[in-house]
Design a protein around this nucleic acid. Sequence first.
DNA 1: TAATAATTGCACTTCTATTGCATTTTATTT
DNA 2: AAATAAAATGCAATAGAAGTGCAATTATTA
Lengths: 138, 138
Amino acid sequence: MMNTIEEILESKNIRVTAMRLLIYKFLAEKEIAVTLSDVENAFEKADRTTLYRTLKTFEEKDIVHQIDDGTGITKYALCEPGCNCDINTDLHLHFHCNNCNETICLTDHKIPQIKVPKGFVSENINLVVKGICDKCSL
Amino acid sequence: MMNTIEEILESKNIRVTAMRLLIYKFLAEKEIAVTLSDVENAFEKADRTTLYRTLKTFEEKDIVHQIDDGTGITKYALCEPGCNCDINTDLHLHFHCNNCNETICLTDHKIPQIKVPKGFVSENINLVVKGICDKCSL
DNA sequence: TAATAATTGCACTTCTATTGCATTTTATTT
DNA sequence: AAATAAAATGCAATAGAAGTGCAATTATTA
Ligand SMILES: [Mn+2]
Ligand SMILES: [Mn+2]
Ligand SMILES: [Zn+2]
Ligand SMILES: [Zn+2]
């Protein structure tokens, strides 16, 4: 049974505003990770700072996760239902296409156990595979 | 049997200049990945652009590899002897310490086989683990 | 309604990366 | 060795993303 966006935001202690609802919907429609510029282009009337801070707020409250795909431009994608951005259960692989420049979450591909040398403590893992995506490799 | 830096550069078709020798030595001494700023601070007399382009040249010729550790600042580290930055044999894990902010190559920790969905083609993999390094976790 | 708190919009700043072009240095050819 | 060509270097400027201070607006609470 699906919750409304309002309920989702409230459950994460984020106040519901018109802007936040719109941005949430925008992210939900996309199946690829988006940049701040993408959001800007989609909401030209809104101020960039507001959009920026909305994404930051979403990130802090585990509504979206930030993706660093190596392009130098931060991308964001909606978390899966039930995600708490936990290192052991929620982290997944990201794929960046060198051809179409899109980055997608491969949420079914969890990050394998990574061993680190003695004395090192893992807190977070970022795994990005680059190459050609399914749409571009036809 | 070790080659001289001159020989290494020449074998990669890079002209030997005073600046390049100095930068190579600087990188070789460091056991952590360095930023352009780090190099700048070490060679205050040299122009930043020259240092920047030297690192780019080194990268193109597989003398160094670039590391995107998620801090938003590109880092560079010398490749291992014999490295061709090949996806199957040379890619290794990088560790970024959230405490001291240093990033190191874990060259002994090769990146495990990563499966991607049908239709996707892997060309490169970036795997960064963040946490507390051995020096900081004591 | 009045007081309070959070959000939004605007202007500005910081920082990294990158480029165009003139000058200097290095390599090659005559 | 001198002339020529090619590459490297230095300087200045730009682009672009990220982030911040503060005033104005909107929502919440008393
Ligand atoms: Mn993702
Ligand atoms: Mn490395
Ligand atoms: Zn693609
Ligand atoms: Zn450390």
